[in-house]
Amino acid sequence: MSRHLTVGVDGSAESLRAAEWAADEALLRGVDLRMVFVDQWSGSAPGPSVALEQHQWADKVLADAASDVAQDRPGIEVATVRQSGRPASVLAAQAAEADMLVLGSRGLGRVKGFLVGSVGLATIGATDRPVVLVRGAQHPDDERPDGRWRRDVVVGVDVHHACDALLAFAFEEAARHGCTLRAVYGWSLPPVVRDACALAAAERDMGPDIARRLADMLLPWRERFPSVDVVECTPVGGPTMRLLHAAGDADLVVVGRRARRAPLGTHIGSVAHAVLHHCPAPVAVIAHD
C-alpha cells in the first residue's frame, strides 16, 4: 500500500486550510494526499433526491478542494473519498491507513481559543495515528517557498515518563522542515513554598536535576538527529501554561496522550486538551504508551 496523508474536508474554511497544510506536508514527505468527506445523516435516512443532492455537493467540495491544493503544487497526487458513517469512526478508519490525519479547527471569534468539537476529540481518541489540528488563516510569512517552516517546532514532554513516539515525531518534523526544536517541561514547586526566598531556594535546589532529566531524555534523539538544533526549556510553572507560552512562536506544537486500549471513551489528558483549545499554532497529538 502506498504511503499517504489523509485530511478531512467538509467545505469549511478551516478544513480547506487543513487541506493546504496537509498538501504541503505531503509534498515535503514525498507521499500522496487523500481527502475524505464523511456523509453523516441525522435522524432517518433522507429520500433519494435529497441523498443525491447531498452526494453531488460532497463530490463538488472534494473536487474543488483537490483542484485548489493541486493548482500551486505541481506533482502532488490527490485522491478523494466520500464515505457515509459516523465522522469519528470513518476518519479513524482512514487514519489507520495513513501516516497522519489532518483536521481543521474553528476559531471562537473574540474568545481566545478554538473549537475542536466532538468529532475532532472523538477521532483523536479513536486512533493511534498522529492527528494534526490546523487553525484557520496563516500569516503569509510563516512558510518558506519550499513549504518548510520559518519558526520552531515545540514539543511538550514529561521528564518522569518515557515518550519515544512523541519525541520521534517532533524530531522528524524539525529535521524535515529544517527548524529548531524546543523541548518544554514546565514543573511546579511544592505547595509548602510560600514566599519569594523559599521559592528561589526550591528552584535553585530542584532546577538542575529537572534540567538534567530533560537533557538525558533528549540525548539519544540529539545523536540520532544531529542536524536538528535543540533548545531545552525547564521553566517553573504549570505545564499547560508554559507550553502555551512557548507555542506563541511556533509553527507546530507536539503533545502526547496516553494510548488507552479499553473502550472507555476519549482519553486525551488535561494538558493536550487545553493546548488543543487554546494554542494558535497547528497541534499534533501523538499517542504513546
Rank of each mutant, 00 (worst) to 15 (best):
G178Y: 12
H177A: 09
I268Y: 01
D146N: 15
R224E: 06
D216L: 00
V155K: 10
G178A: 14
D216E: 06
V155F: 09
H160C: 09
D251H: 13
M241A: 07
A202D: 07
P263Y: 11
L181N: 05
T240L: 08
H177S: 07
P282Q: 00
G136R: 13
A165Y: 03
P226W: 05
V275M: 05
E173H: 15
G186W: 01
D141Q: 13
C163V: 07
R151A: 11
P226A: 08
C179V: 15
H177V: 06
R213F: 07
C233E: 13
M217C: 04
E173T: 04
H160R: 07
T266F: 11
V153E: 09
A174N: 01
P140N: 01
V254R: 11
R242P: 02
V275E: 09
V228D: 11
E232I: 02
C279I: 10
R182P: 02
H277N: 15
G156Y: 01
A196M: 03
D195E: 05
P282H: 10
A274G: 13
A250S: 12
R222W: 00
A168Q: 02
V253M: 11
Q138P: 11
M241E: 03
G269F: 12
A272G: 13
C279K: 14
F171K: 09
D205T: 02
G265L: 08
L167W: 07
C179Y: 10
L167D: 02
H277Q: 15
R182I: 03
P191Q: 08
T180P: 00
A200H: 08
A183N: 08
L244T: 02
A262C: 05
D249N: 11
R151P: 07
G186K: 08
T240W: 09
G265C: 04
V193E: 06
V228Y: 10
P190G: 06
L181D: 03
P190S: 14
D152K: 09
S270L: 05
L244K: 06
E223D: 13
A200V: 11
D229R: 10
A259I: 01
C279R: 08
I268S: 06
C163D: 13
E173Q: 15
L252P: 14
A196W: 12
H267F: 09
V231H: 03
P263D: 10
D141C: 14
G147H: 09
P140L: 02
P263L: 09
D216I: 00
E232W: 02
D249T: 06
A198V: 13
